[in-house]
Amino acid sequence: MTVVLAGVLFAFVAGLLPATADAADRLVIYSGRKEKAIKPVVDAFTKQTGIQVDLKVGKTSGLANEIRMEKARPRGDLYISTESGIVEILTKEGLLDPYQSAATKTVPEDFRSAAGTWTGISGRARIILYNKNLVPEKDVPRSIFELTNPKWKGRLAIAGTRERTTLAWATALVAIKGETFARDYLKGLHANDLKILTDNTEVWQGVGRGEFAIGLTNSPNYYLARQANLPVDVVYPDQESGGFGTPVNPNAVAVIKGTANPESARKFIDFLLSPDGQRILVTQDYEIPLIAGVNSSEVPPLQSIKRTAVTAQRLADLEEATLTLLTSLNPNW
């Protein structure tokens, strides 16, 4: 029995070893971006440079917590987040290394770090997603501020702040319109029984299947819903001149401080911002290209969207106060 046991144990350990061996000369990427979106870029990068990559896909916020916990002995080389507020927090905590790729300056200034720690790689706009069967063309709202109208009572959905883009949207509201206005507006939404869901997937699916008439979510979700043959359409809200515009959130990449492979990490960022990398990235998941000249067939270009004028740093500064405001209005945020 002892011999059998020892054999079994040995087999287990032997079976697991290849997965753990020679991790040092491989690039480790912590990605909050979907595997579907980032994996093709990684594969192309490996093909081009010969550098092996270990990808760890997870929630943007979960990976950020991991980076904080690993501070003493960083294990990841690169971090890809789905939102800028989080990389601002990590910058403040001194967990990221500055790196300016040659292509960084072609990214609009509001999509890269003032400290040079992170660079936007693609963007997502806040949109109004609606169900065409439930909202007749004449009723389609053109502004998020129309949604406090009682006719939308019980028909609205948004993801909670577990989705950081929701928090960024609310923070932009506080930053531009002021806290009093934001509070009244959000109260108005709650008066209309705004349903707070777990994540954006629930929002686009709920709208697509008719549980809700209108959802506040991100632009790629419109394409996902359409791909699933759901009867939805999209509005980029508040586009009139002098209007609020709509926040565009960048997906960001950054080098984790203390990386063992700074060269490879930088190469990867260069590749990500190169025309090749950008093309693969934005076509995979209906992202908005941030670099001029990179075009996606279906997604409206960045220039065509009037975006809310607020910097990532300002958003990061106001984030905590906004969160307190939100949870004071409804614990489900």
Partner: peptide, 19 residues
């Protein structure tokens, strides 16, 4: 999990999140 080492529940999670 080490980077590059996923288990079945992790795969279920990733695919679910990505719809």
């Amino acid at each position: 999990r080490p980077a590059g080492f996923d288990t079945l529940p992790v795969r279920v999670y990733i695919h679910t999140v990505e719809a």
